[in-house]
Structures are given as C-alpha cells and as structure tokens.
C-alpha cells in the first residue's frame, strides 16, 4: 500500500534517530571496551619499553660485559645469604631498615594511591557515560585496575625510584668514603651486614605497603565516585565485591615480594660496586633506578604469564 508523503518523512526521521542511537551505543561500547582492556594494553606497552631498553643497553654496553655483570650480581646475591656475624645485630638492622625504607614511604604511597584510585574511577565513569552498563562496574573496574596492576607494579616502579636511589647512593657514598673497606678490614662481611637487612626489610614490608596502596586506591576511587555523583556508595561497594577472586590478591602479593627483592638487590649491587667519587655515586643511583625498573617490568610480564594465563 503506497504511503502518504508525511508518513514517509516521519519514518525516515525515526530511522535516522535509530541509526544515530545505534552508532552512539557502538561508540560507547568501543570506548568502554578499550578502557576495560587497559591492563592488556599496558602489557604491550611494557613489552615495547622492555624492547627499547634492552636495545639501548645492548647498544651502549658490550654483551659480554652484561653477562659478566650478571654473573657478578649472582655472586653478590649468594654473599647476601651467608651466615651473619651476629644474629642479634642483624635483627636490629632489619628493624631499622623497615623503618628507613618502608615506614618512611607509607605517606607517599598512600597519597599517590588515593589520587590514582580517584582518577581511575573518574575515567572509568566517563567512559561508561550513557551506556547500558550498570554503574557498579565502576567499582569493579577500579578494584581490578588497582589490585592487578597499579598497586603492585606502578607503586613498585615508584618505589624503585624512591628507595632504589636511596639505597644506591647511600652504599655508593659508603664505598667512596672507604666505610665499606673499613667493614672489610674489621672482618665484617659488608654484603651480609649492609645489603641483607635491606633485602629482608623490603621483602617483608613492601607487601604491607602495597596492601595499604590497594586500600588507598579503592578508598580514593570510592570518595571520587560518590563525591562526583558518578555512582552511589552502595553501587561502588557492590562493584568492588563483584566477582572477587582472592587469587588476584595473592598474585599481587607474589609480584610485590619479587619486585621488593629486585629493588633492594639491584640497587644495592649498583651502589656497592661504585668506583670513583661523588659523580659516580650519582651515576650508580641512576643505573640502579633504570635497571630495577627494567627488571620489574620484564618480571611483571613473565609472572603475569605464569600466574594468570
């Protein structure tokens, strides 16, 4: 039956509206999908950074030199686990390092985590704007981003900068001012005495720091989500409880312990073998941060493959 001219115009408008809405939904879904897969994309980013860094390292230094350095690092680590001269002194040193390296980083870690959690929530909410997805997914996405990647990896990278440079520069200064030689002459194994407490302290305290970071991040997300009106408190809390797999927390803690070992051992290695003067101490400090970061990123990829896939 032929349609009336007015009716045909109405149908065309309705058809256009439907197509426009469909296109909008499609765009929103794509944006949401991209945001939701941020973690996977980060992994590819990490790989790229690793490749670029390895290329630069290989370009600048001789491959044999790297292998020799790695061998030296392994011997250094073996020395760390030698029997200490006095166990009672060792316990005191571990407690001291927990305070110096760990406890003094609490405020920094919590502060960064609060704000990053807040930003992750706001970005996730912005990507979900007007979509059919339930609002509790904001809490869900924030929790997973914080738990899986931000707290264990990104905070460890930040700590590699803060703690790693501290360790390398303090050991480097001790080396150039002959304090390490003084220990050796006294018959004290300087690696056991100076490095072991740092490694033990970080491996013990970093998981606690990362747990604080996780709580900080989620609380930051909850505050920003509810204050901005993107979701209600109940929706956010429901989201962070939704589909929670405890192994994800275990995975994050395993990563953190390994990263703590990397930060403490690699930074100590670079600081301990400093040669020269003040300038070299600065260079050791830089090398410590670069190498710790590279090792963290590579091991993050390997661990993720092993534990999650």
């Amino acid at each position: 039956m032929p349609s009336k001219p007015g009716q045909s115009q109405e149908l065309t408008t309705a058809h256009e509206l439907i197509s426009k809405e469909a296109s909008n939904v499609k765009t929103r879904n794509v944006v949401f999908f991209v945001a939701f897969k941020l973690i996977s994309v980060l992994k590819i980013g990490y790989l790229l950074i690793v490749v670029v860094n390895l290329h630069l390292i290989l370009y600048k230094t001789h491959a044999m030199g790297l292998i020799a350095s790695f061998g030296k690092y392994l011997l250094f680590i073996a020395d760390v686990f030698r029997k200490p001269e006095r166990r009672s002194v060792m316990y005191k040193l571990v407690v001291k390092e927990v305070y110096e390296l760990g406890f003094k980083s609490v405020l920094f870690v919590v502060f960064v985590s609060l704000f990053v959690g807040a930003v992750v929530t706001l970005q996730t909410a912005a990507n979900m704007e007007g979509s059919w997805m339930p609002r509790y997914l904001i809490g869900y996405a924030t929790r997973d981003a914080i738990l899986l990647e931000f707290s264990p990896t990104i905070i460890s990278l930040l700590l590699a900068g803060k703690i790693g440079s501290n360790i390398a520069s303090s050991l480097g200064t001790m080396r150039v001012t002959e304090q390490i030689d003084a220990l050796e002459v006294m018959g004290v194994n300087p690696v056991t005495y100076l490095v072991r407490p740092k490694i033990f302290a970080l491996m013990f305290f970093n998981p606690l720091l990362i747990c604080m970071s996780m709580f900080g991040g989620v609380i930051g997300g909850w505050i920003s989500g509810t204050l901005s009106g993107e979701c209600t408190s109940a929706e956010f809390i429901s989201g962070i409880q939704y589909d929670f797999v405890p192994f994800k927390a275990v995975y994050a803690i395993i990563k953190t312990i390994l990263f703590a070992f990397i930060i403490a051992s690699v930074s100590s290695f670079h600081g301990f073998f400093t040669k020269g003067g003040a300038l070299e101490v600065g260079r050791s400090s830089t090398r410590a941060v670069v190498f710790s970061s590279v090792f963290i990123i590579v091991s993050n990829y390997i661990l993720t493959q092993l534990l999650l896939n």
Binding site: E85, R86, V89, T173, M174, T177, E178, Q179, D181, A182, V185, M186, G187, V188
Partner: peptide, 26 residues
C-alpha cells in the same frame, strides 16, 4: 686496627656507636 685517610666513620652512627661497633660484632 685501621685508620683510613678520611676516618671512614659510619655516618649513620654517633661517635660512641662507631667505637662500640667492633665490640658489638666481635
């Protein structure tokens, strides 16, 4: 016993702790 050119005292310890250190260890 060794006296280094710059003294090589441990920066993180005070005078007493520096002298006490070898006794604590040995």
């Amino acid at each position: 016993g060794m006296v280094f050119q710059g003294g090589a005292l441990f920066d993180s310890m005070n005078v007493e702790q520096n002298v006490l250190y070898p006794l604590q260890m040995f």
